[in-house]
């Protein structure tokens, strides 16, 4: 009980500074200290945001962005974990794939967006490819390190009891290296989102990224800030979701 109270009061105290920043911003705007064209008052931005949600204009671009991200990120996680486990447990596959991974990994993935746009054309498949390319390597490498760093006693015990390979992977290797896999997935989450927004901005068709850049170019700054706020909620929401999932999956993490 007292623990809960403490957490609650900590949360309330944490609200003080954002609230005061908002107040200062609002008063400075109302008193005309900041240029209202460049930095509109929070209350005006909030009104734009309410309008956006009210007439439903927010949903189609938001869904576009979320769908691209979800498909790309999901694929990247699956591919990264599979290849990571395969490379860590099988020496032949390791030798086969390690040089290729080390060749593609150092490419700054943002540089690939225009290249792939030109080669594959501007479209959803291209954007998803970009997200997968960006998100797969953090997952792959931390999975690999997680599996390679496992206590050998675990694997030897499995061998002693003649546990089959498939079961060893699913019941021992994956659960034991889960904290590392999740650490990689966390990095991939941020990177994936960055690449989705960038791809949308460069493609100039749809999505939250496109909206933000388009509104800035047509100088509708209030609406632009409203969309950025949508993105804050999206990014923050995804990270919170990840935290919750991580605490569920790895309850012992952070307690050692």
């Amino acid at each position: 009980m007292s623990w809960r109270l403490k957490a609650l009061s900590a949360n309330l105290l944490g609200l003080i500074s954002p609230a005061s920043v908002l107040c200062i911003w609002e008063t400075a705007g109302a008193l005309g200290w900041i240029n209202p064209v460049l930095l509109p008052r929070p209350s005006l931005i909030l009104r734009s945001l309410v309008d956006l949600v009210g007439d439903g204009a927010v949903f189609s671009p938001l869904l576009h962005t979320i769908a691209l991200f979800a498909v790309g990120y999901g694929l990247a996680c699956v591919i990264g974990i599979c290849i990571g486990v395969a490379m860590a447990t099988n020496q032949v596959l390791y030798g086969l794939l390690e040089p290729l991974t080390e060749c593609i990994r150092p490419i700054p993935k943002s540089a690939l967006v225009p290249v792939l746009f030109l080669f594959l054309g501007i479209g959803r498949a291209t954007m998803i490819t970009v997200v997968v390319l960006a998100a797969v390597f953090p997952v792959l490498i931390s999975t690999f390190q997680g599996v390679r760093g496992l206590d050998p006693v675990l694997l030897e015990t499995a061998r002693t009891f003649q546990v089959r390979r498939q079961r060893t992977i699913f019941s021992i290797i994956l659960p034991a290296s889960l904290p590392m896999i999740l650490a990689g997935m966390r990095v991939a989450l941020g990177l994936g989102l960055v690449l989705v927004i960038l791809a949308e901005m460069l493609a100039g068709e749809d999505g939250v990224g496109f909206r933000i850049l388009d509104l800035q170019r047509s100088f509708q700054i209030r609406d632009m800030f409203a969309w950025i706020f949508v993105l804050v909620l999206l990014g923050g929401g995804l990270m919170m979701l990840f935290d919750v999932a991580e605490r569920r999956l790895v309850p012992w993490r952070g307690r050692t």
């Binding site: 105290l13 944490g14 609200l15 003080i16 500074s17 954002p18 920043v21 941020g190 989102l193 960055v194 989705v196 927004i197 960038l198 901005m201 939250v208 990224g209 933000i212 850049l213 509104l215 800035q216 170019r217 700054i221 632009m224 800030f225 950025i228 993105l231 804050v232 990014g235 923050g236 995804l238 990270m239």
Partner: peptide, 22 residues
């Protein structure tokens, strides 16, 4: 920590490209 951490945590999840236009 009380003064700055919440502000930093609010800015952190914004994907970098989105802060460029403003």
């Amino acid at each position: 920590r009380l003064a700055l951490l919440p502000l930093i945590e609010i800015i952190r999840p914004i994907p970098t490209p989105a802060v460029i236009p403003p």
